[in-house]
Amino acid sequence: MTDPNAHLSADELDSLLLDHGSSRATSHIATCADCRAMVSADRQLVAALTVLPSWDPRAGFAERVIAGLDRAVVATLPATPAGQTARSRSARRRVLVGGLLVGGAVAGGFAWAALNPAAALDLASPALQDVGQTLWLSFRGVMANALEQPWFGALRDTLASPVRVVPALVAGGVAYAAALLGLRRLLTRPAADAAGW
């Protein structure tokens, strides 16, 4: 049986802080000044702790977290946002139609210029003509320089022969794939158990 004069145990103190102390604890603090003072001080402390403020991280925290996720996790995210609305589908359709119209107009302009080069040149400003001439001269200069190089003959022979170009392309592809795999391995986080359970 518990000694009615014994000071409060930790559990009794906790239950008093939660306002459901046992009858022994309640009657004990009525007679014990030390325990009463301890309960009072703990109540004040807990009340002060309870109202301590909490803080948010800086704006953009969620974006930084999402950006920091493994590529494998991000890859599982749907390509389009879940729960698309009719409004968002309509907006996408408008963007698509607008893009097609602009693309068609640009392609039509090029086609017309190809068919009517003189008229196109007349329309273009002198400055544009100067830029075009400069670019053309630069291209010709680079090509003339390349043609004079000792390795150009070997390159031309290689490109002209499928027997030589196919192994070169395959070797290049394999090297590229190996580099990609190596890079992916470097960027993958270690598969540690995050929480230990």
Partner: peptide, 13 residues
């Protein structure tokens, strides 16, 4: 940030 990245990367577990 590190905490959330760990949690979300390991959400399957």
């Amino acid at each position: 940030q590190e905490t959330f990245i760990k949690v979300l990367n390991a959400i399957d577990s």
